[in-house]
Write a protein that binds this DNA or RNA. Structure first.
Length: 240
DNA sequence: GCATTAACACGTA
DNA sequence: TACGTGTTAATGC
């Protein structure tokens, strides 16, 4: 739980007492779109899947939530209901911070505010990146970008460089068949971007994964000066 | 053409 | 034993 360490010791212990931990099984649903937000959730162990509402809008984007991922702050901050569905891909351990505790931290602790603000910012960037991924035709590129999202160093700092995930689970996240995912993984491994093991994937070059399937190398000079002046290099991920 | 499903052999937990 | 992987063949858009 990366945010726990920004709190002073006394507050940390207080939060720890109010923290709830639950085991969920594959297929279990943690929060449903439209349900009032009661917890700020975090993944301790396992893998969750976030999907946008399947009712109102047609678009259904998926995102994997590995350990150290925290979510639900958007709904809590607005005192509204969850806007996404989150379910367990496999049996997982999930932590929950009660809404009242979350609110108390927001109102009293600057460092916690910074953490949440940064989290929201990164998620916004990842959300726009996800929209871009949807338009990608190349399956290999989609797998690559999804892996880069899973291994996001700020959003999922606890993941590190290697993660337990099956090719079937990855296929479910990306929206491809297991066989096609396998083919994509082999290709990415051939480019020395990842290393594939039994039930596990190592990321060797995350930046390389973000470039897969891109037509031009972004870090090049003026296409035309009338457009973005501040965009020296287009790195959708590394915004400070 | 390309991705999907189905089916298989094989190695691993 | 149950599961994950790598591969091939048949099928569909």
């Amino acid at each position: 739980m990366p945010w726990l360490h920004v709190l002073p010791a006394a507050e940390r212990h207080r939060v720890a007492e109010q923290l709830q931990v639950a085991e969920v099984q594959a297929g279990d649903v943690l929060c449903k779109h439209g349900r009032p937000a009661t917890f700020w959730f975090g993944v301790i162990e396992g893998l969750l899947k976030l999907s946008s509402n399947g009712s109102a809008d047609d678009v259904v984007t998926f995102s994997g939530l590995p350990p150290s991922a925290w979510f639900g702050e958007g709904a809590l901050l607005k005192h509204e209901s969850y806007r996404c569905n989150v379910g367990a891909v496999r049996s997982s351990k999930v932590a929950g911070v009660p809404a009242a505790t979350f609110e108390r931290l927001i109102e009293n602790n600057i460092a916690f505010n910074h953490y949440v603000m940064n989290q929201l910012n990164e998620r916004l960037l990842q959300s726009t990146a996800a929209r871009e991924v949807e338009r990608l035709a190349d399956p290999n590129a989609r797998v690559a970008r999804s892996l880069a999202a899973l291994f996001h160093p700020v959003l999922h700092p606890g993941v590190g460089t290697s993660m337990r995930i099956t090719q079937q689970e990855l296929g479910a996240l990306v929206g491809l068949s297991r066989q096609r995912v396998n083919e994509a993984l082999q290709a990415l491994q051939g480019e020395l971007l990842i290393r594939v093991e039994y039930g596990r994937i190592h990321v060797v070059d995350r930046h390389g994964l973000l470039i897969v399937g891109r037509k031009r190398d972004p870090p090049h000079e003026d296409d035309r000066s009338s457009r973005s002046s501040t965009a020296g290099k287009r790195e959708p991920d590394a915004a400070a």
